[in-house]
């Protein structure tokens, strides 16, 4: 079974014909070649696939692509192009907030979501904001430093 799908990704209208079992992050990566969002655990635990759907952060692996019919999706690529997360990206580099980088696209989406709702978070609030995103390299402190720096910028 294949279904027609139309949606907007990073501001561009997109159409495809896909199997309903394909989750959204696979659609972005494999059909649209937007490989910034990462597929990690594929059961909603690691947060590497975090993306924005209709302005809200969701797990790309816990939403089927066919469920995004008519939706507006933003990934790390689009957020980079518009400059929406430029301050965060700069701070991540400055504070060494990544090593292997696998978690970074999801971390940036989580951090951007946090700062939109709460532009001046405490470190504790930052911890809570990224608590759904795993990083296996940094030990998190550098990521919290970076988000704090971006918030103050």
């Amino acid at each position: 079974m294949k279904l027609d799908l139309s949606l907007t990704v990073n501001g561009e209208a997109v159409s495809a014909r896909i199997e309903p079992r394909m989750h959204l992050v696979d659609f972005l990566r494999e059909v649209l070649d937007l490989t910034g969002s990462h597929a990690g655990c594929e059961h909603g635990v690691c947060g590497a696939c975090s993306i924005l759907v209709n302005g809200q952060m969701v797990r790309g692996c816990l939403m089927l692509a066919v469920q995004a019919e008519g939706a507006e999706v933003w990934t790390v690529e689009g957020l980079t192009e518009t400059g929406a997360i430029a301050a965060l990206q700069e701070a991540f580099v400055a504070r060494n907030a990544l090593q292997c980088g696998f978690c970074t696209p999801g971390m940036l989406v989580a951090a951007a979501t946090l700062l939109k709702a709460n532009p001046t978070p405490t470190r504790e609030e930052i911890r809570e904001g990224i608590s759904g995103n795993y990083c296996r390299c940094t030990g998190y402190h550098a990521i919290i430093d970076a988000i704090e720096q971006a918030a103050r910028a």
């Binding site: 909603g44 797990r59 816990l62 939403m63 759904g132």
Partner: peptide
């Protein structure tokens, strides 16, 4: 309940 991204769905 879980994390923000889960609570949105």
């Amino acid at each position: 309940i879980a994390h923000a991204a889960i609570r949105n769905r």
